[in-house]
Structure formats: C-alpha cells, structure tokens
C-alpha cells in the first residue's frame, strides 16, 4: 500500500488521548451520578420532580462522556461521528417518546384492568 506506511501511533485518534480530559470525564460523570443517587435517597422531591432532576443529571453525565471521553467535536477526525450521533438522537426521542405516548392513550381505552389499579399505580 503506498499511502499508509506511516506510524499508526501518529494517527490523530491516538494523539487525542489526554489524561486531563479523561480524568475530568470520569470525575464529572461520577459526581453527576452521585448527586442523582443522593437526591433519590433523600426523598425530598415529588415523583415528577425527581424524574426531571435525575433525567437532567443523566443528560449531563452523558454530555460529559460525549465531550470528554468520546472527545466528539467538529474536527476533521470526529466530524462524521458527531454528525451520525446527532442524526440518531432524534430517533431515540421518537421511538421512546411516541411509544410512551401511544401506550399512555391506549391503556385507558383497552385495558379494563387499568381502571382498577389506575389510582395506585404511577403513570409512565
């Protein structure tokens, strides 16, 4: 092969390794998860408030991982990974969100059993 007889260790994806970023990624995601754990155990928030808070913390942890561990950005090396992730995220939202919405409206119409337990169960 003519082109790539170069040293693989010089490849930009090898070069991007950085103690600082990786360490910060570890600390950030651990801290966010620890906060989430504490507020869950503290039982101060109502259900929806808790859900919103821990979801937000999960998003923050994921963001930290995407930026600091995966090192995604718009550089030439990472551009297409970033683009593909950006294209796929809406699909998570669609598949999980629309499924949730659909079943949310479906249950009261189709499940007699639902009526009986609706009062005590938590809605999704």
């Amino acid at each position: 092969m003519p082109a790539h007889s170069t040293d693989p260790l010089l490849h930009p994806e090898v070069r991007q390794a950085s103690i600082l970023a990786y360490g910060a990624g570890f600390v950030a995601s651990t801290v966010f998860m620890a906060i989430a754990l504490v507020i869950t155990l503290g039982r101060v928030l109502p259900y929806l408030g808790l859900l919103a808070a821990i979801s937000a913390l999960a998003m923050l942890a994921l963001l930290a991982q995407v930026v600091l561990l995966f090192r995604l950005d718009l550089s030439e090396t990472q551009l297409w990974k970033t683009v593909s992730l950006a294209l796929v995220i809406p699909l998570f939202v669609l598949s999980i969100g629309l499924t949730g919405w659909m079943f949310h409206t479906l249950y009261p119409r189709t499940m007699l059993h639902f009526m009986a337990v609706q009062g005590s169960g938590s809605m999704m």
Partner: peptide, 19 residues
C-alpha cells in the same frame, strides 16, 4: 447498538406499570 437499547428502554417504559 444504541437503538437496541432505545427499543429496550421503550419496552421498559411500557412494561413498568403496576399491573
């Protein structure tokens, strides 16, 4: 692979009712 988990989480949401 992430969409495998998306589908599993969607299913988890559905099967997470009291009944």
């Amino acid at each position: 692979d992430a969409l495998i988990f998306a589908a599993l989480f969607a299913a988890y949401g559905v099967l997470d009712h009291r009944f």
